[in-house]
Design a protein around this nucleic acid. Sequence first.
DNA 1: GTCTATATTAAGATAGAC
DNA 2: GTCTATCTTAATATAGAC
Lengths: 178, 178
Amino acid sequence: MAREAYIPQLLQLFRQYGYDGATLSKISEATGLGKASLYHYFPGGKEDMAHAVLNTLEHWFDAQALVPLRQTGSLRERLRAMGQKLYEAYEGGSQPCLYAILMTASTRDAFSDRVAQLMMSLVAAIAKAFEEEGYTPEASRRKGEDAAMMIQGALVLSQVLRTVAYLLERLRNYPKSS
Amino acid sequence: MAREAYIPQLLQLFRQYGYDGATLSKISEATGLGKASLYHYFPGGKEDMAHAVLNTLEHWFDAQALVPLRQTGSLRERLRAMGQKLYEAYEGGSQPCLYAILMTASTRDAFSDRVAQLMMSLVAAIAKAFEEEGYTPEASRRKGEDAAMMIQGALVLSQVLRTVAYLLERLRNYPKSS
DNA sequence: GTCTATATTAAGATAGAC
DNA sequence: GTCTATCTTAATATAGAC
């Protein structure tokens, strides 16, 4: 079994229990691997596992969520395609954002750079799409920030209020007005 | 010393280290109290401490952040006053939201009801203000949800990008257009 | 590559003196 | 009300056989 095969389960565990709450015992039980085997795949322990998950998420993000922004079609269509990808990834808001989780964990310093990097790439990609449409760099950047804030805010509210309505409404129909 | 005297330090510790990361040792060191003394004030341990902090925050929220919404003045002025209160409480985004932190902790089930309660009261209070202005209940509710999402999104981005610009811009000038 | 067994550390929590 | 000392549990992590 390749190390990559365990990424989905690790992601699920971190999302469900948080970084600190996803103990090696839980991970061992969920993967069916003994603790020693986990260290065989991830010599750096839990931090190593989280970084491996981030590797996969970063790749997915660039290859799936952001790719519509670089394609042809109207700005509205492209943003909508991105929203649809995010909607699916977060399962309509029933799944939390791992990046937000890692920022509240006891070891957040170990991940903050990568989290910031990804968030900036989201803001920049959306801003670029607006710029191509004739918006000023300043206005485009603000559009990117607004979108990122809306996404994160929708994810937080979906978790807190235990309803998928927020993302469902906002991301499926994003953007309401561009 | 009354138990209430330690609330600010507990809030600060939970914000800085997260719920799981704020260990009794750190709390003991920060408060200057031995572990046994901590259990004297908070017999239920850390969970008890977090609930005590939530008591204080709920009171502050109702008595400070929401009170402008019930006063006289234009809707815009009242919303702006609420934004200013939140801006101060989160120190322009340099401080994270404890409610978001508790939702990603290993013991989130212990707090999820209270977190949802407070978030719903925010949405309802804003919606009520819009209703009084003639908005339909449906549109008012959406306004309340939008505002709550924007606040949480701004807080997340402020943390992730380590800049206070987001909240500073969005909350100080909230609402841009109502 | 996976296991059993174990080491090490630190967490949450309590007993009981003062 | 605060302390020292200690208990119990569980966490991360590793050694070494197969």
